[in-house]
Amino acid sequence: MSTEIPTNFNYKDIKILKQFLTETGKIIPARVSGLSAQQQRKVTKAIKVARFLALIPYTDKQSRV
């Protein structure tokens, strides 16, 4: 699915993080994305930080208000 998987995920690299989100903004489960448990934990953490800083939506419902 993804071409490059970095060893460390950063909340600022939203282009990479968006690969691990569904269209509605949910985090894709590890069993689907194929990431290792360690990688999945890191992605999840980075996505949640990016959400807090309004770089990524929590859900697509709130984006068009």
């Binding site: 800083l53 309004a54 770089l55 990524i56 939506p57 929590y58 709130q62 984006s63 208000v65």
Partner: peptide, 18 residues
């Protein structure tokens, strides 16, 4: 200045500093 993914305090845009 970036578009926010969702409004914060009724702002739709925000100036990011890191």
């Amino acid at each position: 200045i970036r578009e926010l993914a969702y409004p914060i305090k009724e702002f739709t845009k925000g100036h990011y500093l890191i």
